[in-house]
């Protein structure tokens, strides 16, 4: 009789420990996913820094008197590089978003120069920057989803106990603070 009780107790302990390990592993997996997702954003941001000087040079050749727009892009790029070493995700998101805006206005301006728009090099750069912008936004989207999952796990019971014990921290969202993107989507039927 005694040994049956012993086995039951032992089984309960084993199941409990196994369950704790599973929660811990899930937390580690999520933390790594967040880290990995952030490095994906980083790769694309660096790619964008590399492409911009080329673009500015090409546009200069055709639209030299759009100096203001060109300077805004160069300045925003430098600012973004300056804060790229910072740990604050939010500050980086803010500056990178400014860079996106200046690039948008540069491409809007270039619509007025048919010669520039016919330039093969410019078209190549435009496609490269379009895809880099898209990749940044998709990488951000994936990163934010991963952060959401990690944060939920660190807050919700019972995984929050394990998260507290092993010091799992909440991660910061890579958020875009922009009026237009905050508006509710238009509904059409």
């Amino acid at each position: 009789m005694e040994w049956i009780v012993l086995i039951v107790i032992l089984a309960v302990i084993i199941i409990f420990v196994g369950w704790l390990i599973a929660i811990y592993n899930a937390l580690v997996r999520l933390r790594n996913a967040v880290k990995n997702a952030f490095s994906q954003i980083d790769v694309q941001l660096k790619r964008r820094y590399d492409l911009i000087p080329n673009l500015v040079e090409t546009v200069k050749g055709y639209a030299a008197h759009e100096r203001e727009t060109l300077e805004a892009v160069t300045k925003a790029r430098q600012q973004a590089i300056d804060v790229s070493g910072l740990d604050s995700v939010q500050e980086r998101a803010r500056v990178e978003n400014m860079l996106t805006q200046t690039l948008k206005s540069l491409f809007a301006v270039s619509e007025n120069y048919p010669d520039l728009k016919a330039n093969e090099n410019f078209l190549k750069l435009q496609e490269e920057l379009t895809t880099t912008e898209n990749k940044i936004s998709f990488a951000r989207q994936f990163y934010n989803d991963s952060v959401m999952q990690l944060n939920n796990k660190t807050e919700m019971f019972p995984s929050n106990i394990i998260a507290g014990m092993f010091n799992f921290k909440q991660a910061e969202f890579f958020e875009v603070e922009e009026e237009a993107e905050r508006e509710a989507p238009e509904v059409k039927f």
Binding site: A33, A37, K124, E127, T130, T131, N134, K135, F138, F142
Partner: peptide, 16 residues
């Protein structure tokens, strides 16, 4: 085909 390649890469990133 750069556009196609880029689009696939974008979706690779989006889907993780």
């Amino acid at each position: 085909h750069e556009v196609l390649w880029n689009v696939v890469e974008e979706m690779k990133i989006a889907s993780g």
